[in-house]
């Protein structure tokens, strides 16, 4: 089982619903977020191209944050989901420095926090909060090892990319182009 997410940049309008849904679902304090919107503009007027992405922890297959964590607070659970054990985290920020995606932050309570792929929901058979709320159905979550999952189908049929592939971390968040 390998959990992954795909964001359809053709559908995403950058409304930030994923951001606020994550904040309320996971009680993320005001001023912090586990996911965020990036608007990537290219070209010159009037030949323009805009790519809108919802970004978050990439739950990398070769996760530098897990490798560098001195207390093993950063760890991998089922489906390759990368989590932080809040009790074991000493807030040293080594993981923050190692993450190519700037996906982690220090929670006001002192531990490092980030996207969990809403594993608490996934374990109940639900989709992550961001995926379930997205009004434009721009997000797909599922198991890459299941050939019939929506995400496997989307990656088979659609052009896609990952972010900063040169970092070599083998991210599990894909962007459909």
């Amino acid at each position: 089982m390998r959990y992954a997410m795909a964001i359809d940049t053709k559908r995403c309008v950058g409304c930030s619903d994923c951001v606020v849904a994550c904040q309320t679902e996971n009680n993320v304090p005001t001023g912090y977020c586990r996911d965020w919107i990036v608007e990537d503009m290219a070209g010159q007027y009037p030949e323009l191209h805009l790519e809108i992405r919802s970004e978050r922890c990439n739950h990398c297959e070769d996760a530098p944050c897990v490798r560098c964590c001195p207390t093993s607070a950063s760890h991998v659970v089922e489906g390759g989901v990368v989590l932080v054990d809040h009790d074991d985290c000493i807030g040293c920020k080594a993981c923050i420095a190692s993450c190519p995606y700037d996906a982690r932050f220090v929670h006001p309570k002192g531990y490092v926090d980030k996207c969990t792929f809403c594993i608490h929901r996934v374990r109940e058979g639900k989709k992550p909060a961001c995926v379930s709320v997205c009004p434009t159905h721009a997000m797909i979550f599922g198991d890459l090892d299941d050939k019939n999952s929506d995400i496997s189908k989307a990656l088979r049929t659609r052009q896609h990319k990952t972010l900063i592939p040169e970092a070599g971390t083998r991210p599990h968040v894909y962007y459909l182009l």
């Binding site: 409304c15 619903d17 606020v20 849904a21 309320t24 679902e25 709320v133 997205c134 009004p135």
Partner: peptide, 24 residues
């Protein structure tokens, strides 16, 4: 805790927009 859309609702089809999600 949170507000989520009602799947039977034709206005939202069960998916709120950021404002509705942030309505709390």
């Amino acid at each position: 805790w949170k507000i989520v859309g009602n799947p039977d609702d034709p206005h939202s089809n069960g998916r709120f927009c950021p404002r509705g999600t942030g309505g709390l």
